[in-house]
Every structure is written in C-alpha cells, then in structure tokens.
Design a protein around this nucleic acid. Structure first.
Length: 744
DNA sequence: GCAAGGTC
C-alpha cells in the first residue's frame, strides 16, 4: 500500500460517482502533476477505479477517487425471504456475488469501499463531486457517511452539469454546502420503493405457494414501476377486447389526363353509412372531373436532434427491430470500447465545446468491411469519407440540438475513435446508426414539395389528388439508409386549373374501425416516459422483468397487425396480478404512488417534511394493505395460481408446434438415446415416416411461445439460460429458414 | 428466485 506516496502533503479527498468522471475532474483540476494510482497499491486488487493525485492552480493537493454507482443498498435485516412484512431494513455494501459453498466473498463494492476508507483516513477535507441529482447525492452521501465515517455534513459539494474543464474548475472555486434535503429525499425514495416492492412481491409469492400446498414455486414481483407498466398493457388489452367494430366506407378512384393516371380520394375520409357511400359513387361514376384548385406547398424537415438514450432505442427498434434493452447493452459495449459517449443520457444537446471537426475527420477513417449493407464508400476509402468531406468543407458546424437536457451527460455522439478489434454485426449496425445520426444533425433542412389538387365532379362532389416531390435532400443525405419518410415520390402530370379529367373509375371499400394497437417494446417505453415512471436507464429493464415473470408476452405471428411486429399482450398471470392488486393495493398499479411520492420527496428536499414521517406514512399504508392481503391470502392465491399453473404447463410442454413438412404430426422435443442430445422431431416419424428434424440448443430451458415463423412456418421458440432470464432469445428452429440466410 | 436506481 503506498498511501504514503500521495500523502506527503495534506489533501482534499474528492468523491466521484464513476471512474470516467474522476478522470475528467482530475484532469480539469490538476496542473502539471497528474498521477494515477492503481487500486493495487491501495487495497492490493486490480480492476478497481483508479485514484488520481493532482495539485491545482492554487497549489492545493487533491486526491480524486470514485465510486461505481451505488456502493450501498438496502437489505432486509432479517434476511429470510419468505417472511413478510419486513420494515427492518438498513444500508449495507452491495454484495452481488457470493460463493455457493463457502462464506460470502468480498465483492468489488467492498474493495472500493475499503480503498476509499483508507484514502479518507489522511484526508483533511472532503468534496462530494457525484452527479448533481438525487441519486448522485445519495451515492456520495453513503460513501462519505459510511466509507469515510460521518463526513457528509462537513463535506463540500461541487455542483456542475457537464464535465468541461471550465465548469469543473468553476464548481471547485465555488464549493457549496451538501444538500441534506436532497440526500434525505433520495434515501427515502430507496426506502419507500423497497418497502412497497419487497413486501408486496413476497406477499404475492407466498400466496401462490400456500394455495398450491407448497408444491410449486413461482417468483412473483410487483413494484412502483412494474405495477403501472403492467397495468398499461392490461388496460390496453381490455380496450382491444371490448372494441366493437364499426363499419365505414372509403371512396377512391382514378382519373386520366393525356394517358397519365391520377389517383384520387373523396375529400371525406370516412363515410359512415353504406347508403351515403353508394349515392356518392353512383352520382360520380362516369362523370368527368374539373380541376378547381392546385395548391403547392414547400415542406421543410429540420435535421434530426442528437440522440438521447430513448431516441436511440426508438430508432434502433424502428430500423433494426432491436429491443430497447438490447440496444442499451450494445451501446454500452460501444461506450466501453471508447467509440461513443456515455449512452445513459436524456440530453439531446451536444456541448458547444466539442471539437466536431476532429470527430468527423476521425470518422472518415473508419471503414466497415462488408459491415453495413448501405455504405456509399468508394474503393478503399472509409465508409463515411464522402459524408465527412461535405461537412468538413463548411465554415462552421452547429448541430440541431433538441430541447431535452441531462444534468450529467451530453447527447450520444461518436468519439471519432476507430474500433480497436473487430465489431460484431449488431455493434456495427448500431454504431453506424449513431454515426449517421450524428452527421445528420449538422445537415440543412430537407425540403419537399407537396401538391394538392382539388377536383370537382358534377359541381358537387370534391375529390383530391396528392403529389410529392423531393426538392432538396439536406440532412437526409447523411441519414439515407435510415430515413423514415418514404422516398416514394408520387408524380402528378402537369395540371392546370380548369383542366377536365376523364373519369376512369370510382370505387368504394368497406372498412372497419380498429381497436387501439397493442403496445410494442418501444411504445410501452414511451408510455412510461410520458407518465414519468422509471428512469432512462431502468425502463427497458422493467419491461424485461415483466417478460421474465411471464406477466406479458409477445403476440403470436398470426395476431400481428396494426403496429406490425412484436406486439405485447398480457398473460393470465399478468391479468390476475393486476386484478388482485387493484383490489388490495390500488395505488401500486396506478401512477398515483409515484406522483404522491414525488410530492413528499420534494417536501423532504425543501425541508418542509421530515423523511422519517414520510417513510412512516408509507410503512403504515403498506401495513394495512398487507394485513388485508394476508387475510385473503388463499383467495388471492387461488386466482393467481390457476393462471400461473396454466402458463407454467404451457411453457413446459414438449410439443413445439405443428409440423410444417407433413402437416399431420407435431414437432416435439426428443432426446437422442445415442448422443443424449436433444432435438426437435416430428411425431409422425415412426408411423408416417416424416423426417422433419431441427437441432436445439443443448443448454438452457426451451419454452414454447405459440409462435410460428413468418417466413417458413416452423415453430419459433424461446430459450432462457439459467440466471440470464434477462437475455432470453427467440428463434425459428428451422435451420433452412430464409431468415437465417438474410442475417449472414 | 423480492424493488428501483446507479454503473462495469
């Protein structure tokens, strides 16, 4: 341990939230002597956040250390997961891994805490320099209170919103008092979420256990964010089921001028009765039209805004069909590879201090060999060389910043670094999307011309024809493979007011009103954003949890409509959970809990309310709910149990689906007596000689999800690897499926 | 094998 090496002079210990921030802060503060000390020298362990020793402009000595997000979390003092209610909780170092056989092993958090403790021993002053938000305040509070031993009150707070040299130096020149209110509010938030979530989750799990005589186990959960999110899906499901289709009629037709066919539609989009529609069609059939108006409009589309995490997730879903959590996982890898900036941001703004030209010329050197299908690279030059050139030729570059901000991080942008190793195909895809989006934010507005022609038939019936033409490509040049608006131009011939058009045909189509579309992963995420539940970094995880618990599932292929692929529907379990919660703890499934909690926390923050009282109130409420829940335990359990068991049975069945080859048998999971490996084979093999066969992964559980591949009609199944339920994987079992060829 | 929130 070489604490002696840094402790020649008295120093201020600076506590940061994450290693990156520590490095930036040390760089900004330090003058010439910038020293990095490995954790190996402090606690004898590698792989922990580095510590920096710097001397600033005023010759003050700083030692900058870092947490790794939350190092402390709440634990149930009792520790028995099957008892509830539990109100006796305390803050403890987060222990993630434990040895299966032996005692708990010290984790990374414990090692970091130990190293910060040692550094704190010789510090004369403490600066809290975590992100300036509620969670950041808590992270620093816990480090200063527990690791540094009661130093929060005497510490000073560095307040900055971006990690630029200027802001950091400025914040250290103007250190504030710690925000006790903010820390109290944050810690209360943890407490309330724990008390509600853990107690109700245990209550649900227990009720299932007792009502099936403890034969089966099913992990059920609910919480302040899970509850309302599940309720969104359940309520939408109800709306869809209760929807009554109403018919309406659409009238369209074709006119002709000098051999050009012009498609027209009746000005009124929906005609509600058959008689009205018929009378219009009858009246207009074979009647020529006269142009009474031509309106030309120039429509401009501003460049897109820089990505924040939500925007990136939406776009990656739209163009690649990546689920939001998958996108975050890939983005994290790109971030760790130093290819993009920090992805968990809600900001749509790029800092003015960014050296755009440097990044862009860096990007122009990147070349994806056969990576993206859509580069316009020429010869051996980089994938983005041409795009970069056209931007670098400009005098000044300013991105089209959006309105959303983030206290801790700028929008997502590529760093301009070249990938060090070979990227996976999905990483290339997401990286390409981020690069092109970044380039496109500097582009000019795109302009297209829209023409609306009004056609009158028998002086009484109004039809319209629309034309669309690209006038100026602007930013779309950079974002080409991913442009949303259809590039299809609808051409109109040259037309003038007063022109007579020959009537070719007028027709009507019967349509029906549609129920609202099912949520997909992205629209559910958007709903959570709108209702302000969860955070940018956790929303997609919560959706994954609902899948993992079998509360929600992807709709079967044949049911896919409206919003296309990946609709989410609720399962029987999801229904049962929401029903029983609505009965016994209605606030947990509505967004009210979040709303009222936020209000209480604001009061704590401003000093108007005491956190102990707010938490006491929450405890009281949960106590009452738990009592009435326990009384009805068997009754609730029965409701949930039926749903759980039928879902479990469904998932455990060995039949994967109908055999697409012989259409008589079913594909079943079979274990080979020779190789002991499992595979899918047709039940019609011995009697009918059907040789349909497909390999299956040998590890993990295989679940049927009532889904058939859209391309080859073979069953689609889901595998979950033990302990990694988050990363379940759906695939068509047919090795010859065209979808597998497309992916190569 | 319980929440939600940080970060790797």
């Amino acid at each position: 341990m070489s604490l002696t090496r840094i402790a020649h002079s008295p120093y201020t210990l600076v506590v940061c939230e994450k290693p990156n921030a520590a490095r930036r802060i040390a760089q900004a503060l330090g003058t010439s002597s910038f020293k990095e000390i490995s954790a190996l020298e402090i606690v004898g362990r590698r792989g922990l956040p580095p510590v920096f020793s710097v001397v600033d402009r005023n010759n003050q000595h700083f030692v900058v250390c870092s947490a790794l997000g939350h190092l402390y979390g709440l634990v149930d003092v009792n520790g028995n997961r099957s008892t509830y209610p539990v109100f006796d909780v305390k803050w403890m170092p987060i222990l993630k891994k434990r040895n299966r056989k032996g005692p708990k092993t010290a984790t990374r958090s414990v090692q970091i805490i130990k190293s910060i403790f040692l550094l704190s021993q010789k510090a004369t002053r403490f600066v809290h320099a975590c992100d300036y938000d509620q969670e950041g305040e808590v992270i620093g509070y816990n480090v200063l209170e527990y690791a540094c031993k009661n130093k929060y009150e005497s510490s000073l707070r560095a307040k900055f919103s971006t990690l630029t040299d200027e802001e950091i130096r400025n914040s250290f020149d103007n250190l504030l008092k710690p925000s006790k209110g903010l820390a109290g509010a944050g810690r209360s938030r943890h407490m309330i979420d724990f008390i509600y979530g853990v107690n109700l989750s245990r209550a649900l799990t227990q009720s299932f256990k007792v009502s099936n005589d403890r034969k089966r186990y099913c992990n059920l959960s609910i919480g302040r964010v899970q509850g309302p999110t599940l309720a969104f899906v359940v309520d939408r499901e109800m709306e869809i089921r209760q929807h009554v289709q109403e018919p309406y009629w659409n009238i369209s037709g074709e006119f002709e001028k000098k051999g050009h066919i012009i498609k027209v539609h009746y000005y009124q989009q929906k005609i509600s009765t058959l008689s009205e529609a018929t009378s219009i069609v009858n009246a207009c059939t074979n009647e020529d039209g006269k142009i009474t108006g031509i309106e030309n409009q120039k429509v401009t589309f501003k460049a897109p805004t820089p990505f924040n995490l939500g925007d990136l997730q939406k776009e990656a879903y739209r163009v690649f069909k990546f689920s939001p959590s998958y996108t975050l996982t890939i983005a994290e890898k790109l971030y760790i590879g130093a290819l993009i900036s920090y992805p968990r941001t809600s900001s749509q703004k790029l800092p003015a201090s960014t050296n755009y030209k440097k990044i862009i010329s860096g990007l122009s050197k990147i070349l994806f060999l056969g990576g993206t299908s859509n580069n316009e690279s020429t010869g051996s030059r980089g994938t983005y060389t041409n795009l970069a050139k056209s931007l670098l030729a400009r005098d000044n570059l300013s991105p089209n910043d959006g309105s959303k901000t983030d206290p801790a991080h700028p929008a997502i942008y590529p760093t301009g670094e070249k990938p060090k190793g070979k990227l996976k195909a999905v990483e290339v895809k997401l990286f390409d999307l981020i690069i092109r989006r970044f380039l496109a934010t500097f582009g000019d507005p795109a302009i297209s011309g829209h023409t609306t022609v009004t056609i009158l038939v028998k002086d009484n019936y109004v039809f319209r024809a629309d034309g669309k033409k690209k006038i100026y490509e602007g930013w779309m040049y950079f974002y080409k493979p991913y442009n949303n608006r259809s590039d299809v131009e609808t051409d109109l011939p040259e037309l003038h007011e007063g022109d007579i058009l020959r009537n070719v045909v007028i027709r009507m189509d019967k349509r029906f009103t549609q129920p609202p579309p099912r949520f997909n992963q992205v629209s559910l995420l958007e709903e959570m954003e709108r209702e302000k539940i969860g955070t940018k970094a956790t929303r997609s995880e919560v959706i994954e949890t609902l899948f993992k618990r079998n509360y929600i599932s992807s709709t079967s292929t044949h049911q896919r409509k409206n919003n296309g692929i990946g609709g989410i529907e609720t399962t029987g379990v999801g229904f049962a959970i929401i029903q029983s919660m609505r009965k016994y703890m209605p606030s947990i499934v509505s967004t009210d809990l979040t709303r009222s909690m936020e209000k209480q926390l604001e009061h704590i923050e401003s000093g108007k309310a005491k956190s102990s009282l707010v938490i006491g109130y929450a405890i009281n409420k949960i106590k009452k709910a738990v009592v009435s829940f326990k009384e009805k335990e068997t009754e609730i359990g029965r409701q949930i149990t039926d749903a759980v068991i039928s879902t479990q049975n469904k998932h455990q069945q060995r039949v994967l689906g109908n055999c697409p080859r012989c259409s008589k048998g079913v594909l079943k999971i079979i274990r080979s007596s020779i190789t002991k490996k499992r595979f899918a084979g047709c039940s019609n093999y011995s009697s009918g000689g059907c040789k349909a066969i497909a390999p299956l992964p040998q590890k993990g559980s295989i679940e049927t999800i009532d889904k058939t591949c859209a391309l080859c009609r073979w069953p689609v199944v889901k595998t979950v690897f033990a302990g990694q339920a988050k990363h379940h994987w759906e695939f068509c079992i047919n090795m010859q499926c065209p979808s597998k060829k497309q992916q190569q």
